[in-house]
Design a protein around this nucleic acid. Structure first.
Lengths: 196, 196
DNA sequence: TGTACATCAGTGAACGCGCGTTCACTGATGTAC
DNA sequence: TGTACATCAGTGAACGCGCGTTCACTGATGTAC
């Protein structure tokens, strides 16, 4: 008794509408203040239909992390493998991250907010995924760079992304440039000077 | 028709009970999910009495920033003026911040969460106050340190504080040591080597 | 092929509950004279 | 001194509202034979 692929796709579409609608609302009011009925309304389904997809809003939040955010972060990490090895990873990483800001600001806002938000399950899940990104940065950095510096560079990256989100789109380029400088300062070996 | 000092103190006590009670609840459920009735209950007053002190929860949140957090941050900034000028500010700053964690973890949790939270008024108010702290770090750093590095060091400080909050109290010392190293790496002049 | 049955996403009615807010009131205390 | 009045923090009753959740149902579609 398996459902036809078309039925599966249909269900997937509604599920995605719930995820995207929730992100849209969370960008305005914040995820923790959202209710199940609000999410269902935004997705265009009846409140009771919510339960066909998620048990509650927490489960939906975890799906946001797993289904939407994780692929994005993996993409960022993978892009560092093919980056210019003479340059250091900061430039490539910031460029990709700011493209991410343009393409999906709501998802980034969610990441920023819940990274230090009140729900421990979100914090833990997000930190795990950001740690993986930090490892990729570490691998793409010079041999003298400690892992803690790579981790710190991710922290700066996220904070810079948050500042960019709150800036006018025209001012974002300046934020990006300063961010790359600071990350380079942190990642490059002080003994050898920056960029070596 | 002025109220007697005792009456003023009494009102101040209730107001403080509202602020502290809200912080206590926000540390568990998050500030954005808190309601006026919940805050009043925790403070031991009737729901309607809330209005004698604040118009709504947003106003209470701004009072948290102005009345409780701002003095703490000012204290941190002032402590840097008397710090050892040969050492750089990171060691002193981290030590004071981790004392802050011990003394008032709930207030620090609020700062961390709302710094990137969904309410723009909180974000703006907190960034202004953190910028002032960054300037103090800048003033206490070596002459080659750019302001952007001082700002970034505050970002790392807050992230480190968040990690410490989520660690066992016994593991916090290790977090502090690594944090000082990373901040020093960022603040010291790469040309001259660390700590010079 | 047709027929009986199972699955399952979506639904509307209904529930009890806690919410924010209003209102008129109390009681203590300060002020005017 | 006493008396009338103003101020104001705190209160309980009451309101309408949106919430999360349950329930039984529909209708489309896949399976068994």
């Amino acid at each position: 008794l398996r459902p036809t692929p078309e039925k599966k796709e249909e269900k997937e579409r509604v599920r995605l509408a719930l995820l995207r609608g929730t992100l849209r609302l969370a960008a305005v009011h914040g995820f923790p203040s959202l209710g199940l009925r609000e999410a269902a309304r935004e997705a265009g389904i009846a409140p009771t239909s919510f339960y066909r997809h998620f048990e509650d809003m927490n489960e939906l939040g975890m799906a946001l992390i797993h289904d939407l955010l994780e692929p994005r972060l993996r993409e960022l990490a993978d892009s560092l493998q093919s980056a210019d090895p003479g340059q250091g990873p900061a430039d490539e990483l910031v460029a990709r991250t700011f493209k991410f800001i343009e393409e999906d600001p709501e998802l980034l806002r969610f990441l920023l907010a819940e990274q230090h938000g009140a729900f421990p399950a979100f914090r833990t899940a997000l930190r795990t995924r950001l740690a993986a990104l930090a490892e990729a940065v570490h691998a793409a950095s010079g041999p003298g760079t400690p892992l803690s510096a790579a981790e710190a560079s991710i922290v700066l990256l996220l904070d810079g992304a948050g500042r960019a989100l709150d800036s006018e789109p025209g001012a974002r380029q300046a934020v990006a440039v300063r961010l790359v400088e600071t990350m380079d300062r942190l990642l490059s070996n002080p003994q050898n000077g920056p960029g070596a």
